[in-house]
Design a protein around this nucleic acid. Sequence first.
RNA 1: CGGGGCGUAGCGCAGUCUGGUAGCGCGCCUGCCUUGGGCGCAGGAGGUCGCAGGUUCGAAUCCUGUCGCCCCGACCA
Length: 485
Amino acid sequence: MASTDKLPTRAENFADWYVELIQRAKLADYSDVKGCMVIRPNGYAIWENMQRALDGMFKETGHVNAYFPLLIPEEYLNREKEHVEGFKPQLAVVGYAGGAPLEPGQRYVIRPTSETIINRSFAKWIQSYRDLPLLINQWANVMRWEMRTRLFLRTTEFLWQEGHTCHETEGEAQDETLKMLEVYRRFAEDYMAMPVLCGQKTESEKFPGAVRTYSIEAMMQDKKALQAGTSHMLGQNFAKMFETQFQGRDGKQHFAWQTSWGVSTRLIGALILTHSDDAGLVVPPKLAAQHAVIIVIGKTPEERAKVKERAAALAADLNQNGVRTIVDDDESKMPGFKYYEYDLRGMCLRIELGPKDLEKNQCVLARRDQRQADGKAVKQFLQLAETVAKAKEALDDMQKSLLEKAKAFRAANTFEVNSYDEMKAKADAGFLLAHWNGDAKVEARIKEETGLTTRNRPFDLKQEPGKCVVTGEPSPGRIVFSKAY
RNA sequence: CGGGGCGUAGCGCAGUCUGGUAGCGCGCCUGCCUUGGGCGCAGGAGGUCGCAGGUUCGAAUCCUGUCGCCCCGACCA
């Protein structure tokens, strides 16, 4: 709870800092179920804001929401060879129900993703090219039995959205795949203030069952990469296995061209690892549950009554102007205690209001992302009359400045490397842009020897031929290598 | 699955070696007091010591078994 111990610093122990921060900021708890977490109201509020923004963007691009069953007949998974091989080790299977064991042919898996069961429906829904495109999204929980879990970043059960679409032509499906990747990029940058690299995954890193996988990749504060979202061009792989067909303009039957794409509650982990500091959580205003807290200060009951009244009026004014504000007039806690607490919880703005301020018609504003060398907030005095305008300005500026800061960090930790020795030396330095011959065996060897994996081949990284850092063989262009979550 | 750690009050821990009927800090409740970066004092509530057997007059402590969680590696969003 409100422990007065300091958080471990990022420099001391990054992993501990992350876990402690989550628990102290009341974002999540461990549960009694191995690998599963409880998302607490403070954490869920961020997810709700993410959902709202993303859902709006999906609707704008023509998608509609639906819901499919949690349980998938085991046999469905087996139909697509790559798909089942990719997911088999992670499946939880229901083998007992209704008070009796289920026969092997009757067993269900808890969805690890829904391509298969959704295709069963798609096959029924689609008759003609006139039924296309079919643009569906689902908000759901999924389960993947992980060997090793980490709060938000990898848990056995997690929440996500999965888009599933059907198209008449390969080209349309490909366009959709890239369109949704771009939606994710916009969301990451505009809402999360998190810069990402958009690009294609290698063969070995692609989604099991997809033709091609694209991802958005972000750099965390420990310089490790985090895959923050994926968009898959599925081709006709699932359509063929589930007979998702339509009669085309030529009168003949064709298999649908499909895509799927998803982001999960992992984004909350990404948000924490991108912006938070040694004082606790930092959340971009667009995703923050609350924007501002007004701390009521006063010695005597008379003073406090006056300040409370003014604070309530100011809060009402702020709320009417889109600054989500709460008033804290709890008398049992010292103001200083509250400052630490709201810093920890990631409140964007803190407004201090006391008797001295009322005399001067002012208040004190502190921005969560602006700290002095001693770690305490930079404070500025504002006239009460200008507070709403200044608060809005501060939030806008904070949103922008978090993105700029993250961009600068990524730029400072991205390097071109031109030899395998250089790559090994810089293995923990961040994103490494290196030439690679495209051979999966070489990719596996690099992973084995250095811990570095290919993240993606960014669209905006100019592809110029070169020599593979390992074999010296021709390379079509540089690809991003990094340690990853 | 391999290696390590831990299960005692809501949280963090001591007590276990050397058995004697459970304690500390924080938090929580009540009252007084206090309020611009973690106030203070006084009183109080709260635990079948992970679970199951066993040894013993007596087990948090010894023995056997068992369950669970966390961390580090191999699998993955």
